[in-house]
Design a protein around this nucleic acid. Sequence first.
DNA 1: TCATATAGGGATAAATTAATCCCCTATTGT
DNA 2: ACAATAGGGGATTAATTTATCCCTATATGA
Lengths: 118, 118
Amino acid sequence: MYERKIIPNLNCGLDLVGEVLYGKWKMRLLWFINEGHKRPSELQRKIPDATRRVLNIQLKELEEHELVSKIIYPVVPPKVEYSLTDFGKTLIPVISAIGNWGDEYEERLRALILKRLD
Amino acid sequence: MYERKIIPNLNCGLDLVGEVLYGKWKMRLLWFINEGHKRPSELQRKIPDATRRVLNIQLKELEEHELVSKIIYPVVPPKVEYSLTDFGKTLIPVISAIGNWGDEYEERLRALILKRLD
DNA sequence: TCATATAGGGATAAATTAATCCCCTATTGT
DNA sequence: ACAATAGGGGATTAATTTATCCCTATATGA
C-alpha cells in the first residue's frame, strides 16, 4: 500500500472529513451501499466509470475507517456483502446534502465546469 | 495552467460538486470568506498550512466556478477582496453540514485516521 | 538604505491518487 | 475442455494535485 510522506493536517472538522471522504468514488460507494447495493459486483455495475480495482481499494479504506463493514461468506463462488456501520449511517445526511446541492444546480454547474475545460 | 487529459464524469450531483469543491483548501476558503475574512493575507493567516501559491490557485478556480467574486482595488500597496457570490452562499449550509459532522466525531475520526498511518 | 507589507505568478519537483494490465481461486453450465 | 461468474490483488504507469523555490512591483516606516 502507498505510504504517506507528509503527515496530514487534522486541525478542524473539515480536515478530518477530508481524510475519510476524499477519494473519487467513496461518497458514491457509501450512497449505493446505503441504498442496499451490497455486493461488489452490484456496486461496480452502479459505478461503471470506476474500475473494480479502485472500488476495492476505496472500499477497504472505508472499512478501515469503520464506515462500512464487510462480510465474506465462505461459499463458492465467493459472496461478499458490504453494509454501513452505525457510524457510516451518520454520514448519509451529509452526503445527501452534498448530492442535493449538486442536483439542484446541475445545469449551472455543468455549464461552468465545461466552460473551464476550454 | 494544467490541462486535463481525461474528461471528468459529470453524471450525477456528486460528480458536479466534486468538480468545484475538490481541492484541499477550497471549503475552508469559502468558509472563511463567508465569515468575513476577505483579503488574501487574512485568508493565508487563517490557513497557515497552505502556501499563498496554492490559495491563489484555488481561489481562482472558485472564481471561475462563480462561487466567489474578486475585487481588485487600484491602490498601492495592492488591495484585494473576495466575497461569496449568491451562488457561493448556497454552499455554506452544505459545508457547514460537512464540518459539523467532522467536529461531532472529532475524537473518533482522529483516532481512526492516525491508526491507519501505522 | 533596508526590511516589511501587499498581491501575484512562472517553472519545477514531489506527493498522491487513479487507471491499466495481468494474474489467481473454484464451481457450474455447455 | 472451456467459458462464465464471483471476488481479489500485485506491479506499474499515468494523471492530477500540492508544494517549493524564486522573482516582480510600490509605498511606508525605522
